Amino acid sequence: MQDYLKKYLLEDKSVRIESVRMGETWRDAQSHHAYPPVIAALLGELVAASTLLAANLKFDGSLLLQMQGDGAIALMVAECRADMSVRATVKLRDKPIDPTGDLQSLLNPGGTAKFIVVLDPPKNTPGRQAYQGIVPLEGDTIAEALEQYMKRSEQLDTKIMLAADSQICTGLLLQRLPIHGGSNQTEITQADESWNRALHLVETVKHEELLKADQDVLLHRLFWEEPLIAFEPHPVTWKCSCTREKVADMLRMLGKQEVESILLEQGKIEVACEFCAKPYLFDAIDADGLFQAITTPASKTLH
Rank of each mutant, 00 (worst) to 15 (best):
H234F: 12
Q190L: 15
E144W: 02
Q148C: 01
C240H: 04
L201S: 13
E187H: 09
S241Q: 10
V202E: 03
T204W: 02
S194P: 08
A191N: 05
A213C: 08
L199K: 11
V236R: 07
T141M: 06
S153C: 09
L162G: 02
P227N: 12
A191W: 03
R221A: 13
P235H: 08
T141N: 05
A230D: 12
D214L: 04
L174R: 02
E226D: 13
E144N: 03
K206N: 04
E208G: 01
H200R: 10
W224D: 11
D192H: 14
L222W: 11
S194D: 09
I168R: 03
V205A: 05
S241P: 04
L210C: 03
A143E: 01
A145G: 00
N196E: 14
P235I: 09
H220I: 10
A230T: 14
L177K: 00
L173Q: 13
Q190H: 15
L156G: 04
G171Q: 14
H220C: 13
Q155A: 00
E144A: 02
T204I: 01
A191H: 04
H234T: 09
P227W: 12
D192I: 12
I229M: 11
G139K: 00
A198T: 13
L172P: 03
D214Y: 06
E154C: 04
S183F: 08
E203F: 06
E232I: 15
G182D: 01
E209N: 09
W224V: 08
G181S: 04
T158N: 01
E144Y: 00
S241K: 11
E225Q: 14
C240Y: 02
H220S: 12
S166C: 06
A230F: 15
S153F: 11
L162Y: 02
L218K: 06
L218S: 06
S183Y: 13
I179E: 07
P233A: 13
L156Q: 07
R176L: 09
K239D: 15
A163E: 08
H200W: 10
A230Q: 15
V236D: 06
G182Q: 02
M161D: 07
